[in-house]
Design a protein around this nucleic acid. Structure first.
Length: 582
DNA sequence: TGCGGCTATTG
DNA sequence: CACAATAGCCGCAG
């Protein structure tokens, strides 16, 4: 089988631009492709299997069905980047909620098979042997309908025949998923979300492989300023640590021992100098800084300790490679509401450390962040005409404040409180104002709250199921605990619907930028919930800046064709991440 | 060794 | 100090 054969066979079976072609890929073994319909299966083994993918992508540009974004990572590792995908794991998380989406689970849930009877991998015990001992070990499915665990474990990368079966299964599963999406409240929009989420997985694969440009020299200097020079050996590490501890403990009464890393002991330590606190959180101690020199020393110690344990030399060595790129694992929709997540500190890097994130030679960063994204999203998904009117302003809170007859900070706290589920405190009166000014939006939030409290099925605007957990522990709780939990679920549902919809819009924007930025040789290097960092050739900075705004308008229109809601982005062309004005 | 609690960082 | 996340260390149970 040659590359040309693969293209011809796919073309002959009617595959064109955007049609689904399932792909199974194992480095060193080969690549298999499959389409559904007339069960046309095209396995191919050549010297360099990714060339087949590259050729088919160029000639036919199908939508590649993959079991998970691990396939995309393997492709990107081998230098192949495809335009579009149908990521089975991502679509599964959309349809069924939650984070787990391995093939066994995906198959079972699509067939309405109970998950608690999911067969385990490993050597068969007496029971399973008696029950399924005469199942065909080479067939993927068992007589009870589940995927066979031994087939799954042994089947991924062993032989080309197995790869072909995986590709065929993927094509079938994608079809089942499309049928499920067609049964949701808004099938068109759910299918669009599935495509967007899949493209976001491709972006995640690229982010994982490409990494974020970091200037090691700057990073080293920043760390040195906070915790001192890089320790020469383990003994040096211990000595530096002891010295930092001693700087705090010298303020304690003589003879008082304390492990500063133990909150309970720190509380005792504080008590020994006359400072009584229920916990030792920084925001609480901040107000007591002047009460005793020990408090100030402790807060300084905490800062340095944080850097040395989490964002220090160890972190740099572990995640920044010789090419000056900080790499973490990216996930397109981990978490409750479907936000992107990243490891290696990419999403919670201390602001000071952003000085070290510098565009590479001959390049600039184009940074863009969405303004007031959550209230704008609320206006869009709820269809509240009055709130939509407020989004026409650059600062949405200004007209809201005017409407409510309160100052801007109060209006902001009230709106955020409504979305997070705060019902007490200073914003309570303004909250009632919101009810009468924006009843449609407030009803939308209240319905999400109720759904959460009563564990009713709840989906985001784009169709993602918001996982509610199980009710199994409810009876073990007393009345008050149960009510508190229900209230927490209410806040969770309320927020997940907004945060989740915001994540969907953000991803629609990001994948649009991914596609449109290619001709400019610009690449997204970081996604941060409402912020994009793009690296572009130095001469293209302004072009890409305009592109980012155009992509936002395009994505917003596609995501919510009701153009009454305005979305805005703050965009700047910079050399280092910290140069962006805030 | 695994897990909940506490703490800090980000959006 | 509501909502979400990652990540480290401590203390305790198994």
């Amino acid at each position: 089988m040659t590359n040309v054969d693969a293209v011809d066979q796919l073309r002959a079976s009617g595959v064109g631009h955007g049609d689904l072609v399932a792909l199974a890929f194992a480095p060193g073994v080969g690549v298999a492709m499959a389409t559904t319909g007339r069960s046309c299966s095209v396995p191919a083994a050549v010297a360099d299997p990714v060339n087949v993918v590259r050729d088919v992508e160029r000639e036919l540009r199908p939508r590649w069905v993959m079991w998970s974004h691990a396939t995309a990572v393997a492709l990107v590792d081998d230098g192949v980047r495809v335009a579009t995908a149908w990521d089975i794991a991502a679509v599964h998380r959309l349809i069924f909620g939650g984070g787990h989406a391995d093939p066994a689970r995906v198959w079972a849930q699509l067939h309405d098979l109970p998950l608690d009877a999911l067969p385990n991998a490993g050597p068969p015990d007496l029971f399973t042997h008696a029950e399924y001992g005469d199942d065909d070990p080479d067939a993927p499915t068992r007589r009870d309908g589940y995927l066979g665990p031994d087939w799954i474990d042994g089947g991924w990368s062993k032989t080309l025949e197995h790869l072909a079966r995986w590709a065929e299964l993927a094509a079938i599963v994608a079809g089942y998923q499309q049928a499920r999406l067609a049964g949701l409240a808004d099938p068109q929009r759910a299918a669009m979300t599935a495509r967007t989420e899949s493209a976001a997985e491709l972006l995640c694969a690229e982010l994982s492989v490409d990494g974020l440009p970091v200037d090691r020299t700057v990073a080293d200097a920043l760390i040195a300023a906070l915790v001192g020079p890089r320790p020469r050996n383990d003994a040096d590490t211990v000595a530096q640590r002891a010295r930092r501890d001693a700087d705090v403990l010298r303020h304690a009464p003589p003879g008082v021992e304390c492990d500063l890393r133990s909150p309970e002991q720190v509380k005792s330590l504080l008590r020994s100098v006359g400072v009584e606190v229920p916990d030792t959180r920084a925001w609480r101690l901040e107000k007591l800084r002047d009460m005793h020199p020990l408090v100030d020393a402790l807060l300084t110690w905490r800062k340095a300790e944080r850097v040395s344990t989490t964002y220090g030399y160890v972190w740099l060595d572990e995640h920044v490679r010789a090419d000056g790129r900080l790499r973490g694992e990216w996930s397109g929709s981990d978490g409750a509401a479907g936000r992107m997540t990243a490891s290696a500190g990419l999403h919670n890097m201390p602001a000071d450390m952003r000085d070290a994130v510098v565009a590479e030679a001959g390049h600039v960063f184009v940074r863009a962040d969405l303004g007031q994204i959550e209230p704008r999203v609320l206006a869009a998904v709820s269809g509240d005409a009055a709130l939509a009117l407020a989004t026409l302003e650059d600062d949405l809170y200004a007209p809201v404040a005017q409407q409510l007859g309160v100052d801007r900070p109060t209006a902001k706290v009230a709106v955020l409180g409504a979305m997070y589920g705060q019902t007490t405190g200073h914003g309570a009166r303004a909250l009632r104002g919101l009810e009468s000014a924006y009843p449609v939006a407030m009803t939308y939030l209240r319905e999400a709250d109720q759904a959460g409290q009563f564990r009713r099925e709840l989906r985001t605007y784009g169709g993602r199921l918001i996982p509610m957990g199980s009710a199994s522990t409810d009876d073990e709780m007393n009345e008050r605990d149960a009510r508190a939990r229900a209230a927490a679920r209410g806040r969770y549902g309320r927020n997940a619907r907004i945060q989740g919809a915001a994540a969907e819009l953000f991803k629609a924007w990001a994948v649009t930028v991914r596609a449109r930025a290619l001709p400019f040789d610009a690449r997204i290097v970081l996604c941060l919930h409402d912020e994009l960092l793009v690296q572009a050739p130095a001469g293209r900075g302004d072009d890409v800046a305009h592109l980012l705004d155009a992509c936002l308008q395009e994505a917003a229109h596609r995501w919510a064709p009701d153009d009454r809601v305005r979305f805005v982005a703050d965009i700047s062309v910079i050399r280092r991440w910290s140069d962006a004005k805030e």
